[in-house]
Design a protein around this nucleic acid. Structure first.
Lengths: 341, 341
DNA sequence: TTGAAAGCGCTAACAT
DNA sequence: ATGTTAGCGCTTTCAA
């Protein structure tokens, strides 16, 4: 039992008794057609279950496809899910469909995905770069008129439109908040070394806030971690210092999980915490978690808007757009330092 | 300054001084080619930045595309992100790329996305149906040999492969756990009416657990909510009953947020809670949250495996595969009922 | 080992 | 209002 061939324009035309072009005209509302022909064509389309082959159309029209290719390091990360959602909403009105792939933070897979998208002639390419990837090969495609937008982190080897959160000023604001609450020894738990843009920026924001307040910068207060477990260990180590921090800034969601686990475990609930990145149930924690929240949907929406402008012919020079983070005060950052710890 | 045209096979052939077919042969490793020709072709490809046009190839070979189309109700929901990730890992080895779109839980957008995917000749279509959608139109495509897999919920009007969590037995297990802990009045906070498969199944599991234990089924203990706010209100209402529940089962993540918020607000921390669906920082809550965890990655991986088998020619009748949920005991479900509340 | 011609499904350009 | 021809970029078929 060989599967039925998908019906083509010609099949519909034969069924109705008109030419292929007429069917095409009806379906694309291109040129005139008599009401009667129109009706019969649509009937035949429904009867045969005809779906126009978009690839054949694209080939002929020569233009790019109607898709936006998006490469992210991790699809299961809600941040990128929200980014994707923002992009989709923005470009949907232009009839663009989102194509999404995950690089698993591997530069090779990232490159493979980019190649797939290019081969598919996406009309826009968006990339949230993996750590250590390189993008100079994209230059030629950008020159060929395809908009390229980097998200969350800038691309490497290529100057083009970029949309990132205010990692630096956001972290600075969070740390300044702790300082305003009377803290002078503030630990930083992050993923080091900071080769990655976002991590580097956040650490820089932390340092700036200390400098702004004229506080000395103690290297011992900066802890390296790579997952919740090591973040928990790092937190324990910080609190075991002879002159321990009275407040912590956690550099991302993963770190936050470890930091809070350790604080709960160690009964150190009086340590003030500000976390970079919001978490869904932050308000239920005790104390409720004060965060520097990103706005992933806005990041996506902004990237979508840029892409649309580029597609419309905007040839202005590449810009980097910063999407504001917001300090959300919930309690954990408002704990006063207790002397004698 | 008109953008440079993308190079084609013919451009490469001209550059090298061979025929298009020869270039095609080299690139697809189809048929023999002299080492010298091979080298020169590859050089020209690199020099021109040639990317084969996958759409043109698909057109000619007639076969389906090398993509898997996935429609989910909400991309920013981590559950579907993890599902997508599982699918991607499973199909990547077959050279398939994931195409993903969000229906925003709107049957019309779902249908539009499905049409787009069909028009793009995806080789597999996967759908996590929106509430109230209908899929009988897919029958003809399935007959044409395109695998269709439903995820998370069964499709409507069409019998085909389906992968769902053990919503019913999982909930039953969660409620049984509460009963084993001595609870006899157990509230259910969920999204009602239960037109949606997952909600219906979870409520059924709740009822089954009560019946198993010979407990009477009190309608007053079943509360309807649609978001965290109404879930919080519903929780408050349940606890204000003359004979209030001593334990709660929360039907999904959204409900859980509201339930926990209300328990924290009302100081009712001694109410036992089991939540359907895990949350990232469940272990940090006080008490740590006992959950019936789904395995979204496994749901995706299973769907991917099914699709691959179908593409390989498996014509067995459609199956529904259940992916196990797991009861994770963390504390909130182990609170004993206190008389005299 | 290589090439020429035909054709995939569709639409642009020009008829009628 | 409709049809004809040609051709998009590629691969298949057949020939050299």
């Amino acid at each position: 039992m060989t599967p039925a061939r998908r019906p083509t324009l010609a099949d519909v035309a034969r069924e109705v008794g008109v030419s292929a072009k007429t069917v095409s005209r009806v379906l694309n509302e291109d040129g005139p057609s008599s009401p009667d022909t129109r009706r019969r064509v649509l009937e035949a389309v429904a009867k045969l279950g005809f779906q126009p082959n978009l690839m054949a159309r694209s080939i002929r029209t020569g233009g790019p496809d109607t898709t936006v290719g998006l490469v992210v390091p991790d699809m299961s990360n809600p941040f990128f899910g929200a980014v994707a959602s923002g992009i989709e909403d923005a470009v949907r009105t232009r009839g663009l469909t989102l194509l999404m792939g995950s690089s698993h933070d591997d530069p090779h897979r990232e490159q493979a995905l980019i190649d797939t998208f290019l081969a598919r002639r996406v009309s826009v390419l968006m990339v949230a770069p993996a750590a250590g990837s390189e993008h100079s090969r994209l230059q030629v495609h950008r020159a060929a008129g395809m908009p390229v937008v980097f998200l969350d982190r800038p691309g490497t080897g290529l100057t083009t439109d970029t949309v990132v959160s205010t990692n630096r000023s956001g972290t600075r604001e969070g740390v300044a908040h702790l300082i305003a609450g009377g803290h002078s020894r503030i630990g930083f738990v992050g993923d080091l070394p900071t080769r990655l843009y976002t991590r580097r920026e956040r650490l820089a924001g932390y340092r700036e806030a200390l400098a702004d307040a004229g506080l000395s910068h103690d290297r011992a207060l900066i802890a390296d971690a790579h997952d919740p477990e090591t973040a928990a260990e790092a937190t324990a180590r910080l609190l075991d210092l002879r002159d321990p921090p009275t407040a912590l800034l956690s550099g991302n969601n993963t770190m936050t999980l470890g930091v809070l686990t350790q604080l709960a475990r160690g009964g150190s609930k009086d340590i003030a915490v500000v976390a970079f990145d919001d978490v869904p149930i932050a308000s239920i924690l005790e104390p409720a978690l004060t965060v520097v929240a990103q706005n992933p949907t806005a990041v996506g929406a902004t990237a979508g808007a840029i892409a649309i402008r580029r597609l419309a012919g905007d040839r202005a020079r590449a810009r980097t757009v910063l999407v504001e983070t917001h300090l959300i005060l919930r309690g954990s950052g408002e704990l006063a330092p207790r002397p004698g710890r």
